[in-house]
């Protein structure tokens, strides 16, 4: 395959907390190719947002920091570039939208100004052009009467509308990558589908790649070509969406599928046990305590195994040498 647009290698992100250091992302490898949508899936608390904020270099300071790894974007390591260069990347080449549309917009500025601000920062447009472009963006994300709504304040809009504004803002400078961190989690089901459709459509139109973070496999099925499953800060399975849905391999992924409510079956099958605390992960595989296929080797870190072309699992169960 050609070189990925965004190539994360061995990312380790840590927080220093009162209870000591905690590794929220532990050795993450992730490749996002141009034009693709990659789903980053896992239960809440598994480190998805931290991974995204690491890419943007927006980790909460001073607690969070990237301890190891490389984040190659078009060949450049974003962890090495200056803060000034990083500001030219943010919102311009890589932009991000967040889970909470209700609180992600500044309450004291009009939505128009908040879009305008990004345009003015990155694109050499006159005031009028930037203002016009802000209207165009609102139109693009499907807000009716954009020329009037541009003067609205965030509190005058619904959650779905605000998320559309966030998308307009994120896409105003035509970024190459958009990171969407659970963009629909806080929204009503009907609105969720609209926002996902919108992201897919704009991805085509603008020709960007999307890193879609979600805990919902249903969302992945609708929108992603590639999937990466995370558990307790580590990647456990990577595959194309088709492969993952046809033959999920990692016991954790299997558990995720089993826990999706199905029409014919009224009983939910949540994964037994609880997510282990990041402060005292077991030696070896982090999932072992909840795993139905646990074996002696699980006390050692499992290897990555390619069970079919481009379908990787990090699990001893598929280790043919030892079986």
């Amino acid at each position: 395959m050609n070189t990925p647009l965004l190539n994360i290698q061995g990312l380790v992100t840590q927080f220093s907390t009162r209870r000591g250091p905690v590794t929220a992302v532990d050795g993450l490898d992730l490749q996002l190719h141009s034009g693709q949508t990659l789903g980053l899936v896992g239960e809440s608390g598994c480190g998805k947002s931290v991974a995204a904020l690491s890419i943007m270099r927006l980790l909460p300071k001073p607690a969070g920091r990237v301890a190891k790894g490389r984040i190659l974007f078009e060949g450049r390591d974003l962890l090495e570039v200056s803060e000034a260069d990083m500001r030219r990347v943010r919102g311009n080449e890589i932009s991000m939208i967040f889970q909470e549309p209700m609180t992600s917009l500044n309450p004291v500025y009009t939505v128009g100004f908040q879009i305008y601000e990004a345009l003015q920062k990155h694109r050499k447009l006159s005031r009028r052009q930037a203002g016009q472009e802000a209207v165009n963006m609102l139109q693009l994300v499907g807000i009716p009467e954009p020329a009037a709504r541009i003067n609205d304040y965030p509190h005058q809009m619904s959650g779905g509308m605000r998320q559309r504004v966030m998308i307009a803002m994120a896409l105003s400078c035509r970024p190459k990558v958009m990171i969407a961190d659970e963009p629909t989690t806080a929204l009503d089901v009907t609105i969720q589908a609209q926002i996902l459709d919108l992201i897919s459509r704009l991805k085509q139109e603008i020709g960007m790649s999307v890193l879609l973070i979600t805990h919902d496999l249903g969302v992945v099925a609708e929108t992603c070509q590639q999937v990466l499953v995370m558990y307790a800060g580590r990647a456990v399975e990577k595959a194309s969406a088709v492969d993952l849905f046809e033959k999920p391999a990692h016991p954790y992924t299997l558990g995720l599928f089993a826990s999706i409510p199905k029409v014919e079956d009224e009983i939910l099958h949540p994964i037994s046990g609880v997510v282990p605390s990041l402060y005292d992960l077991p030696e070896g595989c982090a999932f072992q305590d909840r795993c139905a296929y646990r074996q002696a080797q699980c006390l050692k870190r499992p290897p990555w195994i390619e069970i079919s072309p481009e379908h990787w699992v990090c699990c001893w169960r598929y280790d043919t040498h030892h079986a």
Binding site: L58, N92, M96, N106
Partner: peptide
């Protein structure tokens, strides 16, 4: 400083 919209402002690349 810890509000989401301040993070949004940073994510826009503002100084």
């Amino acid at each position: 400083q810890n509000q989401d919209y301040v993070r949004t402002a940073r994510a826009k690349g503002l100084s």
